[in-house]
Design a protein around this nucleic acid. Structure first.
Lengths: 250, 250
DNA sequence: TATTTTTGATTGATTTTGATTGATCTTTCG
DNA sequence: CGAAAGATCAATCAAAATCAATCAAAAATA
């Protein structure tokens, strides 16, 4: 078997399993241990993977990239600031859920290079996630034509089999009394389920969504941490009494 | 053999296999090692391929496009005929599974206007299905970058909750002894599960796939009806003894 | 026929490979 | 906890595979 061929098999297996044992690679490629070791050494030099005792794993993030991104992010609108901050909460090794929606979409470029797994129901997110070399799982279910989000029983069911370190949800309305809301009941159901399955849930909403409410309730305020760009003095107490609020300053 | 001819064979093999050994090329062209080496050197200068120790591979840039696009250009006429016939088997009210793959992709335009529900694991199929106003469910799971198919445990699990009237599967190899095969074991697993969940299973394969076998077995011949464009006399009995075969004439 | 181009065989140099060694890391169990 | 056992490791080496360079024969061309 040719070197190139082996390398492809190794990276392919890695993309799929996150970690591979050296023995598995030996079997998969029908090569000797020595050869695989050499392959791993070389691929590590190329930053394609990271060696660990007994095998290899996907490379971990490179912090430098963030500084570059920050610069380009200076004059962007509120959503991008929120998205960037939200992305900074994602840590090495996290498994996160990304809700369909434009704000969460903005998070993706900032996730590049992080060694994470993303589960999403947003079709629009897919392309971008793959471009940024992020291991991506997609929910099943009925594809909603207008928003290209996956919803319904099928989506809920695929969702149940995961559990997340963090989840990031978009909402059309955030109200101190009615909680987080969105126009579509089925989407609301998916969002709520994702929140329940996550250790930490974040709702991303710019200030125009505050004190608004849409038709279908996603969850109560206290069920998620709210990330927004601006919260007027007069409301601070009201919201902070119910949940943690992160305000992303300019 | 003419130089041009050899070059065509080399690039042809490359497009199909991504990586070829020098020895394979020697056999395929009945030329000497030296000649093939010279060919490779020249083709590399023309950026048509990249030489590696022991053979050659596709240049990095072209690899992604080729993985799906060029492959689809092969036997396109045959595939279309097969696809059109397969689509004609779909009846009003059916719930069908469409496997990821270029042949099944061709079925979609012919499904327009039929009142059906489609479940698929092919990301490429989505856009086209929606354009043709077909109710579409998508499997969950890990998105395989190269073929844009959903695979893995997540895909299998979403699959289990459906049942189909018919399913249409693509295969890279069809062999009277080894059955239906495909290069990726995880994809094979998804294909097989879909077949089991369907009342009637069809495998779509143009004649270039016959008597070939790939790494991972999908199913035995008898587990699905084979639809192809050409089956030589000499093989007819062998195949027809094992399963129903539909040959789509020109 | 003479000239140029292409081919296949041969050479020694280079690269890759698998086995082996003793060193280092993990796990197990007293 | 700490020592022994078991894995895994990097380094090394000889065998095997592959390579580039060369040259004469064969084929194509003038």
């Amino acid at each position: 078997m040719l070197t190139e061929e082996r390398h492809r098999i190794i990276l392919d297996l890695l993309a799929r399993k996150e970690v591979v044992k050296l023995q598995e690679l030996v079997e998969a490629t029908h090569s000797s241990e020595s050869t695989i070791r050499r392959d791993l050494t070389q691929l590590e030099k190329e930053k394609k993977l990271r060696r660990i005792h007994g095998g290899a794993t996907l490379p971990h993030q490179k912090r430098e990239e963030l500084s570059v991104l920050e610069k380009s992010a200076k004059h962007i609108e509120e959503k991008k600031r929120i998205a960037e901050y939200a992305a900074s909460l994602v840590e090495h090794g996290d498994c996160i859920y990304l809700d369909a929606g434009t704000t969460t979409l903005e998070m993706i470029p900032h996730l590049r290079g992080k060694d994470i797994v993303v589960v999403t129901n947003g079709m629009m997110h897919l392309e971008l996630l793959l471009e940024n070399d992020i291991a991506t799982y997609l929910l099943g279910g009925l594809l909603k034509k207008k928003t290209k989000a996956l919803i319904g029983r099928g989506a809920l069911q695929s969702l149940q089999s995961y559990s997340f370190d963090k989840c990031f949800i978009g909402a059309n309305g955030v109200h101190y009394e009615y909680g987080y809301t969105t126009p579509d009941p089925e989407e609301a159901m998916v969002k709520h389920t994702a929140m329940r399955l996550a250790q930490k849930a974040y709702v991303l909403a710019d200030h125009s969504k505050l004190n608004e409410s849409a038709f279908a309730k996603i969850a109560d305020l206290h069920e998620a941490i709210l990330i927004t760009d601006q919260l007027d003095e007069e409301w601070q107490e009201l919201y902070k009494a119910k949940t943690a609020v992160e305000v992303v300053a300019k």
